[in-house]
Amino acid sequence: MKTYFQIQYRRLLRGIQAFGVPSYAGLAGILIGFPALTVLLFARTPYAPYLYLLFALMSLVPLGAAERNNFLRTLFAIQQYHRVRLAENLLLAAPFSIMLLVYRQWLAALAVIAVSIVLSRINQLRHSARVIPTPFSKQPFEFTTGFRRQWWVILIALVLTGIGLYVDNYNLSLVALAALLLQCMGFYTQPEPDFYVWVYALTPKQLLLAKIKTALYHTLLLCLPITLLLSGFYPQQAWITGLLLLAGILNVLMSVVVKYSAYPAQPGLPQLISMAVALVCPPLLLLFIPYYFKRAAAQLNPYLT
């Protein structure tokens, strides 16, 4: 078990290096950045604990991936396997829980720990062979696969919206919309194998524009119901809802061009910093998107010409 965690630590350092950052500097960055982002989040919205719970859940779920767990089961005896799963879930949940304790969110802190324990016992989340219907299947693949992987986030967002409307809490519903938009951005984090780029009979610019068009259309399809509901229930705040949707869509488009700006590698630290800055200051997207569009076109050139 000790060896397993030593290897995971080494993998973490290598992952940081792959971003183009010296591993220990990156580790220090995470240790400083995580609390800093938490402070920022709690300063900006009163619904930070809900978002925090959502982020914690989103971090824990991938650890339960079926392939990964099947591999772990071949490595460890069953009891040891459960101990490993519990330990890694608690390790991941601890920073979230600690920060929630700092903010005196006792219940939320406890919930994160409880969820991490429960998830460690559910050998997930086994990848079901049952095909989940999706409204995006006519234009595969980012939203099609993303929807099937994270349909539960959409469900949570819809439930939160419903609760927000029921208790007359506009901000809660707005947070749900923001979570959906963040999810759409997340659909464009993993670069696909080169075959799936090469196969297009399009120039790099045409492919990027096609991807942007699909992202725009699908983001609207996913987020418009909540946007319309919010605008209908809170017409005086419709401009805020509209602005959030606009900023969110631009951020989704940013994630499309950023993904391909480093292709076939994953986006590095400079790209991630740009995305984080753009999240905080959306007007910058008007500069960033054209810039990363050009870079993405250059990166795709070897595969499409």
């Binding site: 095909v131 595969p140 693949f141 696969t145």
Partner: peptide
């Protein structure tokens, strides 16, 4: 190589 959670038709 097939992308995860994509049907044959898709």
């Amino acid at each position: 190589y097939f992308l995860s959670r994509l049907t044959g038709k898709e």
